[in-house]
Design a binder for these strands. Sequence first.
RNA 1: UCCUCAGUAGCUCAAUGGCAGAGCAUCCGGCUGUUAACCGGAGGGUUGUAGGUUCGAGUCCUACCUGAGGAGCCA
Length: 440
Amino acid sequence: MNPLSTIAEISKHEGETVTIRGWLYNLRESGKLLFPIFRDGSGTIQGVVPKNAVAPEVFEAVKGLTQESSVIVEGKVRADKRAPSGYELDVANVQVLQRVPDNDPFPISLKEHGVDFLMEHRHLWVRTPRQAAILRVRAEIIRAVRNFFDDRGFTLTDPPILTPAACEGTSTLFPVDYFDEQAYLTQSGQLYIEATALALGKVYSFGPTFRAEKSKTRRHLTEFWMVEPEVAYAELDDLMDLAEALISSVVQRCLGNRRADLETIGRDVSHLEKIAAPFPRITYDEAVGRLQEGHARGALENKFEWGGDLGSPDETYLSAQFDKPVMVHRYPAKVKAFYMEPDPQRPDLALCVDVLAPEGYGEIVGGSQRMASYDLLLQRIREHNLPEEAFKWYLDLRKYGSVPHGGFGMGVERVVAWVCGLEHVRETIPFARTLHRLYP
RNA sequence: UCCUCAGUAGCUCAAUGGCAGAGCAUCCGGCUGUUAACCGGAGGGUUGUAGGUUCGAGUCCUACCUGAGGAGCCA
């Protein structure tokens, strides 16, 4: 029996006959010479089948074989300068497990397709080299995030996905029937990990979140993954240090381990090679100044007034001024969530930070120091007309040993889109859920 | 919710108001180094839906449906 090999590790078997289990990616025929390209999930390799060098039944099995038919291939690994990967397979035997029917071929040909067609066939689209590479980068990013926190003494604490009420009272939530009671899918685990942070010190959550907003942009999904660290005794500067270290670590891991995949995707990695701490930090006040200057120069359509939240064009303009992620901190409290700690120097400001990715990818991190005072928090809950009863447990955290603490959320899909240089976040997750996409 | 754009062969797209086409895919044939292989041939259409203008509508008008991009909101 031949040794089994993945295509990614084929170079270790040069000169040997190996077995590969996979699918036919493409077939080029030239009379009595066939060039099947096989894929196995780890990569692709071209096979060579000359009619006068193989058994007749092997030649016939490959001749006219349809794209994506499943095959077990035996062949001898040979280095070849003409091959993109440097290796070819001299095919000795092919077993066809299932032949894709001639009259119902694999829908995703090697030619161009439209977005809607590809999303309708997402279950098959993920087989293409580019999509597989993106999913490997996503997995690398997730692994890098978990290692980052695990190595720093953080404890993973999973918040509930079914929740009784809105966390922030702003976003639209997906309602769920919970034994005749109204429940919602979580839009953030933050409030819950504040509780576990005060129990365990440094915690993080990593899971799906849901927003029922009717957003139709390249940056939005209705179901997306978020990583949220929360740290007891952390103040705003500590959070910015943490976010900066996390993002740098993630990017460096991708450059170190997934460079070939980034190349397959067509990413210009020179942008990523600049990503290292420290990142520029500017106050909201300074950002407003830059935006007003941009408007004066005609680079921005609308004049930005102090007090408003940054719009998408504003974020794009600001981030274009830096080649690293830029951290904008201390927004006006009234445009931010009710639970953020006021700046003691300027109580109209919140101790919060948004991290804007370069190249127009927008906000990838949003976080804040949390309000520590019981009385002020209760006052804010009432000002926002939030159901006081639902926040009783959250207020308890300020009653029993309140401390300064804070954290942030990082949107995994937006980070993947930025690292891979993608046009749209729908390619960053195996099965994207958007306003008009629930199938497959 | 608002603004803009699009919908023609399985896919990607053409077609000045005047015979509905090409490339790819599929099928048939050819080719011993192809790189989204190439060459020759064949089949393949309710032009998103409904109405209107016109001698004549894929094309112009109205409504609707579906989708995409953007705004708002957010990660």
